[in-house]
Design a protein around this nucleic acid. Structure first.
Lengths: 330, 330
DNA sequence: TTATAAGTTGATAACGTTGTCAATTGAGTC
DNA sequence: GACTCAATTGACAACGTTATCAACTTATAA
């Protein structure tokens, strides 16, 4: 920048003015400076700039996801990116893998880079470690799961209502022995969904048979194995509710292998890519990650822009998509 | 930091030494400083630090993908993240959407934040705009597609050989009229794959019927429509080769709707999640995005660590996964 | 003409940190 | 007792940028 100023025959401050498009520069000087910038191939140092500027904004936000490679997370990520990029803001992304330590490590790395804000899909349950960060002025929005011991904005899915709708759908098709596969109970959404299952059975006066419930099932392979177990029971279920993406895939895989996919009904929570190509197609309670991402990013930027109002808690509704597997009658 | 120094009764420089774990600090002083850091809830400013340090490293890299939400991109992304995080490096990610302008905008945003390196899945074909950036010391590795007018490391898939293997597989099952769906011909990989199709037909002395070829098909819906068109020909193909993920899905969808999925053979380039659940399962030429991501990140960090040797061009092989759809005989 | 205002420009300090180098201390050696 | 050496600490400048404020130029009004 010093060299640019020298070549253009102006002061440092004038170059700064041109770069920041401040109005108080004559056209003649401006074009001289622009020329010098191009000739010297000067690149503005965004970091040094934000260090000195009074707003201290880095135009960077941090996004903590469960895993950037999983479809729900990456759909969120993409929507956040689009909202951010429209404001010239870049996104630092990281995967927690449901690991509390990794969550905190990543968030510490984000904040030491002075991100303007954080969008967090939490793995841990106690976010009081973020209190001082908030006091320091970092905005934050929680997505998919609520913050623990911290008052902050959240954008959630209505897990309980969604599950009730899915389980109710199976009951409406005559099922009374409905198997349940649940993810790790340390995940808030998993416990909420399980509660929805309990409630809907109770509402239909169906007794809960613990044999039909498999909790803390994580990943495709374990879901596959758990499905096989359920179907080997002396009184096997006539329908399955799988409470997560990968569990749905695992269960579907097992049903296909056992050639039971046309006999046992299946409803899954969260949509499955290609779910409509299978025979039968997989009926799901779809979440809406794009909407969640967009709302989260918009809310974050409202906070970054200075909105100090009380915390907002948005619940994004789910949608039942019927494709066949959930409409198999007992 | 000034406050920490005052509270601990030491100089600024000593605090800096403690933070950077420099050896020349007595245990007693160190613990006083650590105590002060905790009491004052001090957070190190990574940006100011890298501005002053002589290596000028930001411990941040930029990753330009086609779309963070597409499975190939996000698998790459995840692998890069893991390699980076092991070194305490964070990842800025962006989606080009195959748009040259957006590629350049994002890369400019990355470099103005002084990233240590770039991993690029290029959308554009002329990367001479990166020459000055390279001269300035930014390391860069290209993935999936080669750089244009720039000598740099690349990690590519063997598109031509993979396509030949897939088309050859169909020929081996008796097909001679093999439809081809290709993505935008502006994408390097799309042209390479098409060339593989041409070559394999020629090698089997099968004349190329232009009616069977649909190029510049982008996205699921257009692939679906193009498939319908091909099957309506007076002499329709008995097999299809779809040269990209989404095209495979679109074609499969069309085949299912027309109830031809057991009659028309299908081989796709790039694996499809759930491809094994369909009936028949989808036979694909699988790429290996995880390996590509890992190799790219490892190569990038070698460069960042000072490796000045000649450009490396790595070709990651593809793998034929037979699941049924490609083994339908004419 | 002079006073005033508006529009340009620059000198300087500061953002939070680390590199450089010099000063201080204490122990060990002859 | 004087010397050397290593270990520890601090003063100061500098990284690339922008905020502040003062100075200058030109135009306009009285």
């Amino acid at each position: 920048m010093r060299e640019v100023a020298a070549l253009a025959g102006v002061s440092l401050k004038t170059v700064s003015r041109v770069i920041n498009a401040e109005p108080a520069v004559s056209d003649e000087v401006r074009s001289r400076v622009v020329g010098a910038i191009q000739r010297l191939d000067y690149r503005h140092d965004h970091g040094a700039s934000s260090l000195r500027r009074s707003d201290r904004k880095t135009s960077t936000i941090g996004v903590l996801l469960e895993d950037v490679a999983n479809p729900f997370s990456s759909a969120l990520h993409r929507e956040i990116e689009d909202v951010a990029l429209r404001r010239g803001v870049l996104v630092l992304a990281g995967s927690s893998d449901e690991d509390e330590a990794r969550e905190q490590q990543l968030i510490a790395a984000f904040t030491s880079r002075r991100v303007d804000g954080l969008i967090i899909v939490p793995a841990s349950h106690d976010h009081s470690y973020l209190l001082s960060e908030r006091r320091a002025g970092t905005s934050m929005v929680f997505v998919d799961r609520p913050p623990g011991f911290l008052d902050a904005d959240s954008i959630l899915t209505d897990n309980q209502a969604g599950t009730r709708q899915g389980v109710g759908h199976l009951i409406a098709h005559g099922h009374r022995r409905i198997g349940y596969l649940g993810d790790l109970m340390t995940i808030t959404t998993a416990t909420e969904r399980y509660r929805g299952y309990e409630q809907e059975l109770a509402a239909a006066s169906i007794g809960l048979d613990p044999q039909l419930v498999r909790l803390n099932v994580h990943g495709i392979d374990r879901a596959d194995a758990a499905t096989v177990e359920l179907l080997k029971l002396t009184e096997p279920p006539s329908a399955l509710f799988t409470s997560q993406n990968l569990l749905t895939i695992g269960a579907s895989r097992a049903l296909h292998r056992l050639d039971l996919h046309r006999r046992i009904a299946l409803v899954g929570f969260d949509d499955v890519l290609l779910g409509d190509l299978l025979e039968p197609g997989i009926t799901v309670i779809a979440q809406d990650p794009s909407t969640m991402g967009r709302k989260a990013a918009e809310q974050l930027f409202r906070r970054i822009d200075g909105d100090q109002s009380a915390s907002v808690h948005l619940v994004v509704p789910t949608r039942l998509i019927t494709r066949g597997s959930g409409e198999i009658r007992r």
